[in-house]
């Protein structure tokens, strides 16, 4: 199965989804048309399901998310969460800038909505 890679641009993040279960979204997520931008990622996740992966590590390292992206991200988290039977093998890593408590908050809100523990990693300023 091929990896899914999208390069970062001015308003959109880098997406790096590997077939071995390591998924990463890095950068700035404020696309004008969020649904369209993330469609490719969701399609890949559908294919990924067929592969019956055993672990998924989803790393989110974002400087900015607009409200559209937050909703989409939640949907993505929920979709990924449903793939594995053994939920302990689903790891969500939320990276945030040391000074960006807003981003930490956003992570905590998503954690609560998903009802699955996140690993919070603080990045030095």
């Amino acid at each position: 199965m091929k990896n899914y890679v999208v390069s970062a641009e001015r308003k959109t993040p880098e997406i790096m989804f590997r077939a071995n279960g390591e998924l990463k979204i890095t950068g700035n997520s404020r696309p004008e048309d969020g649904k369209n931008f993330y469609k490719g990622a969701f399609d890949w996740i559908e294919d990924f399901k067929e592969f019956s992966p055993s672990t998924i590590t989803f790393t989110l390292d974002l400087d900015y998310i607009n409200s559209v992206s937050v909703r989409i991200l939640l949907t993505m988290l929920q979709t990924l969460h449903s793939i594995l039977d053994d939920k302990s093998k689903f790891k969500v890593i939320w990276k945030y800038d040391q000074n960006d408590l807003d981003m930490l908050d956003q992570g905590k809100i998503l954690e609560k909505s998903l009802q699955h523990p996140f690993v919070f990693i603080e990045k030095p300023a």
């Binding site: 400087d63 900015y64 800038d97 408590l101 807003d102 300023a125």
Partner: peptide
């Protein structure tokens, strides 16, 4: 609103932030 705190800039191109 969050526009000011979310503005990118400064020497490292980071957000202005609430702090």
């Amino acid at each position: 609103t969050d526009g000011m705190a979310d503005q990118f800039g400064g020497p490292k191109g980071k957000k202005f932030m609430y702090k």
